[in-house]
């Protein structure tokens, strides 16, 4: 998984049927990576720091539904205790 910041959302009315009703959020990989569109699986909102699961496993956040995604937001971060 990787750290990300929710910087916006994407509206798409014509899309894969399995994406219906899912929130499509724009997430920038921290510290300064690219922005990707990830499906929200935990109720994240704009401005929040989250972490994103990539690849095939991202779809498991929506089991048993088969959702075409390779990026899902799987946690909203409260804090990070960073030492080094």
């Amino acid at each position: 998984m990787y750290l990300g910041k929710v910087i916006g959302r994407v509206v798409s009315s014509v899309k894969d049927q399995a994406l219906e009703g899912k929130k499509l959020l724009l997430v920038r990989r921290l510290p300064n990576g690219p922005a990707v569109v990830a499906i929200d699986a935990v109720g994240a909102g704009a401005g929040e720091t989250v972490y994103v699961c990539r690849g095939r496993e991202a779809a498991f956040a929506f089991k048993p539904q088969e959702v075409p995604t390779e990026a899902s937001i799987v946690a909203i971060i409260d804090s990070i205790e960073r030492e080094l």
Partner: peptide
């Protein structure tokens, strides 16, 4: 390991 992430709102498997 450079830190611990605290997240109360997360997927169950985590």
């Amino acid at each position: 390991v450079v830190g611990n992430v605290v997240a109360t709102q997360k997927q169950e498997a985590h």
